[in-house]
Amino acid sequence: MRTLDQLKQKECGTILSIVDNQLALQLISMGFVIGEKITVDRIAPLNDPIIISCGSNCVCIRKKEATLITVDDE
């Protein structure tokens, strides 16, 4: 088990939990749901933020938020 910020570019995993309730609510409304497959599409040139995708949803989040998301290795 790792947190999302530890994933390398193009790596993927399954969302296990989102620690922060508010963040979980916001992410679920943008298509990122516990139990779904998540991919780190791109890491910004300055190493932060990152673009993550889940199905056809694609959002940019900061690494700080990514630490709140735990993922299961595939």
């Binding site: 922060d20 508010q22 963040l23 916001q26 992410l27 943008m30 933020p49 673009i51 949803n57 694609c58 959002v59 940019c60 989040i61 900061r62 700080k64 938020e65």
Partner: peptide, 11 residues
């Protein structure tokens, strides 16, 4: 307040 930055990357 927590500083968040969550932005959709549209096609």
């Amino acid at each position: 307040e927590k500083s968040t930055f969550i932005l959709e990357m549209p096609i």
